[in-house]
Design a protein around this nucleic acid. Structure first.
Length: 838
RNA sequence: GCCGGUGUGUCGGAAUUGGCAGACGAGGCAGACUCAAAAUCUGUUGCGGGCAACCGCGUGCGGGUUCAAGUCCCGCCACCGGCACCA
């Protein structure tokens, strides 16, 4: 719009005459300001300004360094931080640290015998150097490293508090086991039945594990989402992961008469009288025509009759051998009849009890009532095995003669349902749990998909779990004054693969005394998962050197929680859920006074290689920022990272485009130099452009439309270059432009600010304010349409009345207008449309 | 299967409440400067037709609402991401 309205014709000569300015030399000015800012940081806490906490998801310091994709997130957060600093006059907390425990360093240690602490230190040093090149305002005095004993002392301390509150407990159970990483995994770390890290197929292994009772917080984790300014997508993923459902548990009496007495004449043990099921559709209870138990269900062997015993045993054995992946992917229903029956508590009918692996042992009660008429899975099972189908909800009160598919909606009229007949099923669905409870054969029940967090890992490079096992006292926490409990030096980092950590082999470390009774005891040898350190690091940044507390109450209240959290979407149900859980716990024990850590979350899109392929070392499509900085400078790369596309979407990287922003910066440099020493009058035209520019850029920045912020700069730069050639640009407009561009291209902005005669940093200046009265256009060019087709354009006053606009439009159309006008439409500032009939 | 996102020139992408589709940039083409090249600057660049003014067609596909649809409604398709036998 800016350029089409004002042709650039003839401006070339004038520009050439004035263009003998010093060329833009990013390498020189960027080095200059990097040093200057290091000596005199621009973002200091004077205790007077309001705080703004802008946080990046801290990186794992991998050996391969950063690529342009990592950069994008850090650039976005820095632009936002600097904008907050200038715009709201905030003291911005913008820290960086290292999530440094984890497998790559440990695997490297196994292969090369180098201690993970050494590899980690080297990688951290390297990546810190790379991150410094971004020219961001990170406060390196706040740096944290999860592997630093002074840090993980508090990770262990939190574990001890969880233990004391009964939220950390041990349990022996089949856990997800990665045979390649040789460690147990949390549910959240199993993706499609595969290990989140190495993609090996996950198996089950019976291990005694430390568990964290995240389920105790299920409801609060769910409800807390409502108040968060997070992407809906992430909230939805967490909601689904928590998986809350409402329904009822119902007891079905077992009819033991089909199961004979044991052949060997032994007397039966006391038998269970009931099978308990969980259902979200208690309204369909009259339609329950069979039951299915998970193969792992405790009653399976007892329920098998003599005739069915062999088939049942075979089925159970086969189900146990099936891998998780197979069991999930095989949608074809399989199952076997136990030979036994149970009684439907409502209608007293005998219904067969089956076993099938589509019923999961660890959800609900591991047993279900089956209503084939109203559940797809039960329908498929009933069809396959010829079981009875009874319809209990009818859409229009009419029974379907031969059902071909399940009717799964909870709306319709109850039929075949005794005293429930005629009721509306949606209403009954809500009322049934209470009615069943009153009848005495069940109770109202809420269920969650969320499972407790498997918290131990059988690996070396993690925080040791601070527990001592004593024969007499049981599990006893290491006394808080003895924390941190550091890792022993080992010779072999290799995981044993038996489910024991390599720490178990270090006798002098393992053998200790019980803190409680002082007798001989053994240390816990499992370590914590990677997620432990990252579940609370954002709290530590504001009080890194505190050796008395995790964070002081004073600092927590002053600087927390996080106002803006920026990172990839891949942690939606891992880190972000765990961090919320720990924050709520720390709130409950009085460490912090808020219970949601991250008020606003922004997920930046991924930068990919050509054709949307993820950048990876093995594919050889990784683009390193280092060369680009050398050739174009940091400011150009920062701008290009934003210019490639909307920040929330994935973008394919194409090196060629960076030339465009480099050219822009050179021209911007020229614009300022052409005019800084001229004495140009502040015309209304210049004022108008200046204030429109402030408005446009500020709006786009505030809305996080960062790619269009860059294109906006380019447009205004082009416009101002024309004006520079025509009569010049006044100094205040240049000063405004420099301030607007400062968050995005800090080095060039600071340099030009100085060259405009300023002595203080541009970041200590205030954000320009747009004056709406000065940005008004007097005239506007609008399109004239005839029956919706553009036939002419006219220039009219902005406040032009309808009659005048239409008259002018008719004039402009001349003989292009024929037929009779049936309707005249005028939208001020937009369009005139004359609808004609031929 | 369910949920979410995306689909616009050669490419990346613009387009407040429906109001001149293609801003800005990349690439291409032409020109200026140059012995020449690079850099820089200028012009041009959706498709089709016409010497031209101009006309027609164009935002994944098919319908619809409207004076007017990339934008709203209905029905599809493709790709990406998440969840996936949770009773």
């Amino acid at each position: 719009m800016l350029c089409t309205a004002h042709g650039r014709k003839g401006s070339g000569k004038t520009l050439a005459a004035n263009s003998k300015t010093e060329p833009y030399n990013p390498a020189e000015i960027e080095a200059k300001w990097r040093d200057a800012w290091e000596k005199n940081p621009v973002n200091v806490n004077d205790g007077k300004r309001p705080k703004y906490y802008c946080l990046d998801m801290f990186p794992y310091p991998s050996g391969s360094g950063l690529h342009v994709g990592h950069w994008r997130g850090y650039v976005i957060s820095d632009v936002w931080s600097r904008y907050q600093m200038m715009h709201g006059n905030h003291y911005v907390i913008h820290p960086m640290g290292w999530d440094a425990f984890g497998l790559p360093a440990e695997n490297y240690a196994i292969q090369h015998g180098v201690h993970p602490a050494i590899t980690t230190r080297e990688n951290v040093d390297n990546i810190r150097k790379q991150i410094r090149q971004i020219g961001a305002i990170y406060d390196w005095d706040m740096e944290v490293n999860t592997t630093d004993p002074a840090y993980f002392k508090w990770t262990q301390w939190i574990f001890v508090q969880l233990f004391k509150k009964g939220l950390a407990y041990q349990k022996e159970m089949p856990v997800n086991w990665c045979p390649s990483c040789k460690t147990g995994l949390a549910n959240e770390e199993v993706v499609d039945g595969k290990c989140e890290r190495c993609h090996s197929e996950v198996t089950k292994k019976n291990l005694k594990q430390w568990m964290l009772k995240i389920t105790a917080y299920a409801d609060r984790l769910l409800e807390g989402l409502n108040g968060l300014d997070w992407p809906e997508k992430v909230k939805k993923m967490q909601t689904d992961w928590i998986g809350k459902s409402y329904g009822a548990e119902v007891d079905f009496e077992i009819d033991w008469s089909d199961v004979g007495e044991p052949a060997d004449g032994r007397i039966r043990m006391l038998r269970d009288r009931y099978i308990r099921v969980y259902t979200t559709r208690p309204d369909t209870l009259y339609g329950a025509t069979f039951m299915v138990l998970a193969p792992e269900h405790a009653l399976v062997t007892q329920l098998a009759t003599a005739e069915q015993k062999e088939a049942v045993d075979a089925y159970v054995r086969q189900a146990m051998n099936k891998s998780n992946v197979d069991r999930l992917q095989d949608k074809e229903k399989t199952g076997v009849f136990t030979g036994s029956y149970a009684i439907n508590p409502l209608n007293g009918e005998r219904i067969p009890i089956w076993i099938a692996d589509y019923v999961l042992a660890d959800y609900g009660t591991g047993a279900i009532m089956c209503v084939p008429a109203h559940d797809e899975r039960d329908f498929a099972f009933a069809k396959k095995f010829g079981l009875k189908i009874v319809q209990v909800i009818a859409k229009d009160g009419e029974e379907i003669p031969d059902m071909q598919e399940a009717y799964t909606e909870a709306s319709g009229i109850m039929i075949n349902s005794g005293e429930w007949n005629g009721r509306e099923s949606g209403e009954l669905k809500l009322a049934a749990p209470d009615e069943i409870e009153k009848k005495g054969f069940g109770e109202k029940k809420v269920n969650y998909k969320l499972r407790d967090w498997v918290f131990s890992r059988q690996r070396y490079w993690g925080e040791p779990i601070p527990i001592v096992h004593c024969d007499d006292c049981g599990a006893v926490p290491v006394p808080e004054e003895e924390l941190p409990l550091t890792l022993p030096e080992v010779e072999k980092y290799e995981p044993t693969g038996t489910g024991e950590s390599p720490l178990a082999a270090i006798d002098e470390w393992v053998n200790t005394t019980c803190p409680h009774c002082k007798r001989k005891a053994k240390r816990e040898t499992n370590t914590m998962p990677q997620w432990a350190g990252s579940s609370w690091y954002f709290l530590r940044y504001v009080d890194v050197h505190n050796d008395k507390e995790l964070v002081s109450k004073e600092k927590a209240d002053a600087y927390l929680p996080v106002d803006m959290y920026i990172g990839g979407v891949e942690h939606a149900v891992l880190h972000l859920l765990y961090a919320r859980f720990w924050t709520k716990f720390l709130h409950d024990i009085g460490v912090v006074s808020f219970d949601e850590p991250f008020k606003k979350l922004f997920n930046q899109g991924m930068i990919t290689g050509k054709n949307g392929v993820k950048m990876s070392k093995s594919l050889g499509n990784v683009v390193s920022p280092d060369d680009l900085i050398r050739d174009y400078g940091c400011d150009s790369l920062r701008m290009y990272e934003l210019f490639v596309g909307p920040p929330e979407l994935d973008s394919e990287w194409d090196d060629r485009g960076i030339d465009g922003v480099y050219r822009f910066l050179s021209r911007f440099w020229r614009l300022v130099h052409e005019n800084k020493d001229r004495d140009v009058e502040e015309t209304t035209e210049l004022l108008k452009v200046r204030h429109q520019m402030i408005h446009t850029i500020s709006t786009r920045l505030a809305q996080f439309n960062l790619n269009t912020v860059i294109s906006g700069f380019m447009e205004y730069n082009n416009r101002l270059l024309e004006m520079s050639a025509e009569g010049g640009v006044d100094k205040e407009t240049l000063r405004v432009f420099v301030r607007l561009i400062a968050p995005v291209a800090p080095h060039i902005a600071e340099e030009l600010w100085q060259r405009l005669g300023e002595t203080d940093s541009v970041f200590h200046s205030s954000w320009p304010e747009a004056d709406a009265s000065l940005m008004q256009e007097n005239t506007v060019e609008i399109a004239v349409q005839v029956s919706g087709r553009v036939r002419a354009t006219i220039t009219i006053d902005t406040d032009c009345a309808k009659e005048d606009a239409v008259a002018k439009a008719k004039e402009a159309l001349g003989d292009k207008l024929s037929g009779t006008i049936v309707k005249e439409i005028y939208v001020p500032g937009k369009i005139v449309n004359l609808v004609v009939k031929p």
